[in-house]
Structures are given as structure tokens and as C-alpha cells.
């Protein structure tokens, strides 16, 4: 079903014009029709988008606290019973398995099923993550997103893809500079984990590498990874 054509200079410029917003309405429509059937053109647009985004990126400025409250109010304000976690299950089926347990807990705690007047999430302590990592297997069979707040040492991890086994453990490691891997603890079977990075390591997180290894239940008996390293990812600034 593809209407692929080899990419010409014309397309290269056109994709740039599209990303910069220089095409008129009719041209946009025609271009987007082609995008639907032409993966090479889509890649070209993605390349352009990646290339120009730094122009818009600069100093981070935290929005006022009311912004989040307004967003929550707009999206969830009238939903006393909350949005079911599986609302869009059809779309995210692949990761649902890993998330099912977390999802259930989430609905019970946050969904207001037990306490309809439970305060909104925004009143939970705010994490101000300044570092992040995507710890991923090469084939993306396991992907865990990590956010780290270097002021508090709190790291939150969420499994985005892949199942957490119950018969084995998944252990999180940090490799800072040339040091040997140091354990940060085990990942929760639910897929959502919070770990507290020891003070001595906090300052070394930027530029470090996070890794997840396969270990016996209870974690590595030796203090070093003993099983296969399943996924790795560099810690980068947000």
C-alpha cells in the first residue's frame, strides 16, 4: 500500500518546510496524505524535527504551581470515579502484562473507589527530577524509564516494556565512571519502583550508566551482578 518514491531534493526541502510550518493549508494536506503511506518521508520529517528542536530548547522555566492544578481540573475534575487504568487498553496491550499489578493498586489507591474525596495527586510531594535514564534492552524487550532527583536522592523507575518475572529478581545497578557496579536495589514486580540512592553516589549520577541484571530471588548474593545484564542506559540531564 505504499506509494514510496525515492527521496528527492524537493522532498528534503519540503519536509523541512513542513516541520518549520511554512507550507500553506493545501500543501500541508497533500504532504500529510503522502506521509501516511510513505515511511521514508516520515523518517525524513522525524530527522528534520530532531534537528530543529534544539532551536526551541533553552533555559528551563518551571511553570507556576497552579498550572498543574488547572490541568488536572480540566482533565479529571468531573470524574469522581477516576479514569480506569485500562481505559485505552487496546493501544497499550503489549505492556499491560507488566503493568497489571501496578494498575490495580493504582486504581484502588488513586481512583477514589474507597475514598471518593481523596485529595488529588498533585498534593503528593513533588519530585523535581533533574536526571533521567532509559534503561533498555537492545531489542527493547525490557525498557525501564528512570527519573532521578539529585537533591533528594530519590529515583523512580517505571517499566515501560517487558515483564517482571516472579521466580527471578531484577536488580538495578549503577556504574559511575570506572567504578565497579553498585547495587541500587531490586525492581518491584509491579514494574513501578522507588529507590533511594545513597548520599555518596548522588553526585556521581550524571553521566553514570544504569543497568538491570537477572538475579536469583533476593538479589545478587555476591554484591556484584551474577546473572545476565538485560538492559542498560546512560543517565542524562533533563
Amino acid at each position: 500500500m505504499s506509494a514510496q518514491t525515492p527521496l528527492s531534493d524537493d522532498d528534503r526541502a519540503l519536509a523541512g518546510e513542513y516541520v518549520l510550518g511554512l507550507l500553506d493549508e493545501a500543501e500541508v494536506e497533500a504532504f500529510e496524505a503522502r506521509l501516511l503511506t510513505d515511511p521514508a518521508l516520515r523518517d525524513l520529517v522525524a530527522e528534520w524535527a530532531e534537528a530543529v528542536v534544539p532551536m526551541a530548547d533553552g533555559e528551563d522555566v518551571p511553570p507556576p504551581g497552579t498550572t498543574w492544578l488547572n490541568i488536572e481540573q480540566t482533565l479529571f475534575g468531573n470524574e469522581a470515579k477516576s479514569v480506569p487504568f485500562w481505559r485505552k487498553l487496546g493501544i497499550g496491550q503489549a505492556v499491560f502484562g507488566a503493568m497489571a499489578a501496578a494498575g490495580l493498586a493504582f486504581v484502588v489507591i488513586n481512583g477514589g473507589l474507597l475514598q471518593p474525596d481523596v485529595p488529588p495527586r498533585s498534593q503528593a510531594p513533588v519530585m523535581r527530577a533533574d536526571l533521567a535514564a532509559q534503561i533498555a534492552a537492545e531489542d527493547a524487550s525490557l525498557v525501564v524509564a528512570a527519573l532521578f532527583d539529585s537533591r533528594t536522592g530519590e529515583m523512580r523507575l517505571n517499566a515501560v516494556a517487558g515483564e517482571m518475572p516472579t521466580a527471578r529478581a531484577r536488580e538495578l545497578w549503577v556504574i559511575a565512571g570506572n567504578s565497579a557496579p553498585q547495587s541500587l536495589g531490586l525492581l518491584e514486580v509491579s514494574g513501578a519502583t522507588v529507590v533511594h540512592v545513597p548520599d555518596a553516589l548522588r553526585g556521581q549520577m550524571a553521566g553514570a550508566v544504569l543497568a538491570i541484571s537477572d538475579e536469583p530471588l533476593g538479589g545478587s548474593p555476591t554484591g556484584a551482578p551474577t546473572g545476565a545484564v538485560l538492559a542498560t542506559g546512560p543517565v542524562t540531564a533533563l
Partner: peptide, 17 residues
């Protein structure tokens, strides 16, 4: 992916980050 599934907690984390 979690936000796409309607996970509000992930959405809040995304907002914070």
C-alpha cells in the same frame, strides 16, 4: 506508553519531568 494507557500517575511524573 503509560500515559497513553491512561495512567495518571505516569502523566504526573511526565509533567514533573
Amino acid at each position: 506508553a503509560r500515559v497513553a494507557m491512561g495512567d495518571r500517575e505516569a502523566f504526573a511524573a511526565l509533567y514533573r519531568a
